[in-house]
């Protein structure tokens, strides 16, 4: 498996990153060499191996259904780059 220039554009878009031409070719080169590195694992037979998603093999703890949070809008909106009338603002989205 190797990566092509068009793949870089697709994944950059999925990740919402914009790349200059230089960045694109750098990315292609370095990502290709990383993939070459990780591709070593393709040689291992793992057909009988169960995947391990998490090192902590326990089960999910449950939280009681209780409202513990109060209104923090005033504090949290101060972090926002743009907010008005209690809303976070982004450039107009046309659906």
């Amino acid at each position: 498996m190797s990566i092509a220039a068009k793949d870089i554009d697709i994944i950059a878009h999925l990740a919402r990153l914009s790349l200059t031409d230089t960045e694109r070719s750098d990315a292609l080169g370095s990502i290709a060499s990383i993939l070459q590195l990780v591709n070593q694992m393709q040689a291992v037979d793992t057909s009988a191996v169960a995947p391990l998603a998490h090192p902590f093999e326990a089960s999910q703890r449950l939280r009681e259904d209780v409202v513990t949070e109060s209104d923090q809008r005033e504090t949290l909106l101060t972090l926002a780059p743009s907010a008005e009338q209690g809303l976070f603002l982004v450039p107009k989205v046309i659906e």
Partner: peptide
């Protein structure tokens, strides 16, 4: 009463962003 993964209220109709925690 509270959200799937946080302790914020799920009540309908509150003022915007008053029921959204960190």
């Amino acid at each position: 009463h509270s959200k799937l993964f946080s302790g914020s209220s799920t009540r309908f109709g509150a003022a915007p962003n008053t029921q959204a925690n960190v």
